[in-house]
């Protein structure tokens, strides 16, 4: 079965809406976010002066403080603080369900892409390499190896903006494992992995596959991106609801099942949150109506350990929502 066949709605038109153009929007978001929240504690060769110590045999002669030697005739070694190599891996869900817009300012995928690009901008500004994996998409996804520098940002933006959300991955466990494989292999200890998805139509084994990324000193965070319609179910009349992945069709009266629906959605989010928190990470809920700055800031705070990445973070992010 081809990918196209797997999604009866693919390629569902991805509406970038207010989230375009991605490069400029990401730069604006990044500027609003406090940068450098995760400074390294390991000293060594770096860029910022960290103090002096007496020379011991074996020290690199390149770091002898020549001025101190000439002035005090003591051999001192200059030490510099340096940031650790905390690569940021961004995994962005671009399956068909992410093309849904609802009543938000744009589709879910563009919002997720904006968050990802903004995070990449922030990370690159701090010197952290950034890698990107796109799950799904019209042509099967993208992967950008972790890299730093200005070109890295361009590659990230290109990778994200050139994808049209499509594909039914609701039962494609192998595809998911294949897509996450490079991250699993390349992300080093201390790397931070962020999964931006709606967490709705992922295959049953997704939680285990994603959880595996949070091993070997890596931390994994999730950002659940939903449309306001998915959160609130604002429909009134009896209708036939059809999912974009998995071929689910349900005849339902929204007014009658709204509470039940919200409960099921909360349960889903709680399952993922419990799993990610258990692995040292966390889950943030975001709506396409939310301010991307707030969402990114919340995530960075969660990553830096300033606050727990749970519903509290979600509430803070929602409180700063820009309309």
């Amino acid at each position: 079965m081809s990918k196209k066949d797997r999604s009866p709605f693919a390629p569902y038109p991805t509406d970038w809406g207010a989230f375009a153009p991605l490069r400029l929007r990401a730069r604006t978001v990044a500027e609003g976010v406090y940068a450098g929240m995760h400074r390294s504690v390991r000293k060594g060769s770096g860029v910022e002066f960290g103090g002096q110590r007496p020379y011991v045999l074996g020290d690199d002669l390149r770091f002898i403080d020549k001025r101190s030697l000439l002035k005090h005739e003591r051999m001192m070694i200059r030490e510099f603080e340096t940031e650790t190599d905390r690569a940021l891996w961004l995994i962005v869900d671009a399956t068909a369900s992410m093309a849904f817009r609802g009543s938000g300012p744009g589709s879910k995928y563009p919002f997720a892409a904006l968050l990802a690009a903004s995070l990449a901008r922030v990370a690159l500004s701090s010197g952290d390499p950034v890698g990107v994996v796109v799950l799904g998409g019209e042509d099967g996804g993208r992967m950008v190896r972790a890299g730093a520098g200005r070109e890295a940002f361009d590659r990230v933006v290109w990778a994200l903006s050139s994808v049209t959300a499509a594909g039914d991955w609701s039962s494609e466990e192998d595809e998911l494992a294949r897509a996450l494989g490079p991250v699993h292999d390349r992300a080093r200890r201390g790397s931070t992995i962020v999964l931006l998805s709606d967490f709705v139509d992922l295959p049953p084994a997704a939680m285990a596959a994603v959880g595996a990324l949070g091993t070997r000193g890596r931390r994994i965070f999730g950002v659940q991106v939903l449309s306001p319609d998915e959160i609130d179910l604002p429909f009134d009349e009896h209708a036939r609801f059809r999912s974009l992945e998995g071929g689910v069709v349900v005849d339902a009266d929204p007014a009658a099942v709204r509470e039940h629906y919200r409960q099921k959605l909360a349960e889903l989010r709680q399952r993922w949150s419990d799993d990610l928190v258990g692995r040292g990470g966390g889950l943030i809920l975001s709506s396409t109506n939310d301010s991307p700055v707030d969402v990114v800031r919340s995530l960075l705070l969660a990553v830096s350990g300033a606050s727990a990445p749970d519903e509290t973070t979600r509430a803070a992010a929602r409180g700063g929502r820009s309309r």
Binding site: F100, V200, D201, D229, F241, S243, Y261
Partner: peptide, 25 residues
């Protein structure tokens, strides 16, 4: 014959409404 069709990715979280509501309608 055919109710209004709405696309909703989270449709799998919806419960089918019992037929009483449709009968009343």
């Amino acid at each position: 014959k055919r109710a209004t069709e709405v696309v909703l990715p989270t449709a799998s979280l919806l419960a089918a409404t019992p037929p009483t509501a449709r009968r009343r309608s």
